[in-house]
Amino acid sequence: MNTPNTIILGAGGHAKVLVDILRQREHFCGAFVSPMFTSEPVFSGLQWLASDDDVCKFSSGNTVLVNGIGMLPGKHLRKELFLSFSALGYRFKKVISPQAIVSTYAELGDGVQVLPGAIIQAGVVIGANTIINSGAIIEHDCVIGEHCHIAPGVTMSGQVSVGTSVHIGTGANLIQSISVGEDVVVGAGAIVTKNVDSFKKVYPARGIIKR
Rank of each mutant, 00 (worst) to 15 (best):
E80M: 13
A136K: 05
Q176H: 10
E26T: 11
P4S: 11
G12D: 09
G12K: 03
L81D: 02
Q176L: 04
V186C: 03
G12C: 03
G61H: 08
F28N: 11
S51P: 08
I21L: 13
G74V: 07
E107S: 14
M36L: 15
Q99H: 09
N62D: 15
N133E: 07
R25G: 09
T155E: 15
V112A: 06
A106C: 02
A151I: 00
S86K: 09
G123I: 02
I21E: 04
H76M: 13
N129M: 09
D197N: 12
T38G: 13
V160K: 05
L77M: 06
L46A: 09
S161L: 10
K201A: 11
N5S: 12
Y203E: 11
D141L: 11
V55D: 04
G171M: 06
A118L: 12
H14P: 10
C148H: 03
M36S: 14
I209W: 08
T6I: 15
I101W: 11
G158W: 07
E182C: 14
G171C: 09
D52I: 10
Q121P: 02
L22A: 01
F32Y: 15
I175G: 01
L81M: 06
R206Q: 08
S59Y: 01
R211C: 09
V124D: 02
I178E: 08
I209M: 10
K194D: 08
V42D: 07
A190N: 03
V95S: 05
P152G: 05
I178A: 02
I191T: 06
T6N: 15
G189E: 01
S198A: 08
G68Y: 05
V42F: 05
I120V: 15
A11E: 08
D52Q: 14
S161R: 15
Q176I: 07
P35S: 02
A100S: 13
S84M: 15
P4F: 08
V17H: 13
P35V: 05
F32A: 00
A122C: 14
Q99W: 07
N129C: 04
W48N: 08
H14Q: 06
G12A: 11
G123N: 03
L108V: 11
W48Y: 14
H14N: 06
I126K: 00
I132G: 01
A106I: 00
R78Y: 00
H27K: 15
V125S: 12
K200L: 09
R206M: 07
V17W: 15
S34H: 04
I69T: 12
G111N: 03
Q113S: 07
H147Q: 08
H149Y: 03
K75W: 05
T170A: 03
A31V: 00
T170R: 03
L9Y: 12
G207Q: 07
D53C: 07
